[in-house]
Design a protein around this nucleic acid. Structure first.
Lengths: 137, 137
DNA sequence: TTATAATTCTACCTGTAAGTAGTATTTGGA
DNA sequence: TCCAAATACTACTTACAGGTAGAATTATAA
């Protein structure tokens, strides 16, 4: 019952970048060390974030990454969607899913409320909302 | 962001057994077919449930399984704990965890409420509470 | 111009959850 | 007694998330 490592890392990375001043480049080594994320795994994630236009990359010496959009425009749910990790309306806590719009799962009723809260939290929280908390060990 | 297959299956199995009359034996083939769970995987889970005394097994011809405890005494959280799948107090949504009793995760505040609701749901729901819903596809 | 520091690409390795196969064991009924 | 039907045990396979390695590419500073 938790987010994938990839999603966790991506959120921590973007939250950290959101705390930096605009136009300030941050390189992979700094991110990896500060956030305790394996360097090679981090660069793989960064390349993904660049591809979907959340981050701009500058290659070569003195290069690095910076956020491409306003921090108020990047929602946590957008990040989760990249790694297929957001909570879908039809997601059943017991892995059964909906049939004809109806979930017959034993825990259906109890699951509705926390599911809604999680969706709301992910959909309505932007990087701006969570900025300033840092995100360290 | 979901329970492991093993936990999902275990809950569905026990919920189905809870709907049956007391002292009625149910065999693995019936459970596997009814609940769409791979037979071999199911028997592995059943053996585990027997070991932790949630279920009694009768071997040999005309054998099968039945619940060992009252359905009001088997909480969902107990089942999740078997497979290390319950939500711990110190569990951080971003995988950072608590340090000196303090979580510095960016999503900490938003995570508290749905986490609490999930824990409450798992801890306070017994097989009796979810009985009667069936648990089918 | 060249060494160096950075991202990117391709491919591989590893650990774990999920699932499968085959055999052994137990037990009731014909 | 013996077969069939059931669970239990041991071991293996598969799929995928997580992680690693190394070379290619890019770009700046000296």
């Amino acid at each position: 019952m938790q987010l994938s490592k990839t999603s966790q890392y991506a959120i921590r990375i973007l939250a950290y970048m959101a705390d930096k001043k605009d136009s300030q480049l941050i390189n992979a080594a700094e991110l990896a060390e500060t956030l305790y994320i394996p360097y090679k795994f981090l660069t793989k994630i960064m390349t993904e974030l660049v591809k979907v236009d959340l981050v701009t990359s500058i290659r070569g010496r003195e290069g690095g990454y910076k956020l491409k959009k306003e921090i108020s425009d990047i929602m946590i749910n957008d990040i989760l969607d990249l790694f297929n990790d957001s909570i879908k309306d039809e997601q059943c806590v017991l892995g059964i899913g909906f049939c004809n719009g109806l979930c017959k799962c034993a825990l259906h009723d109890q699951w509705m409320k926390p599911k809604f809260l999680l969706q709301k939290m992910f959909r309505e929280s932007s990087l701006e909302d969570i900025a300033g908390r840092g995100c360290k060990k």
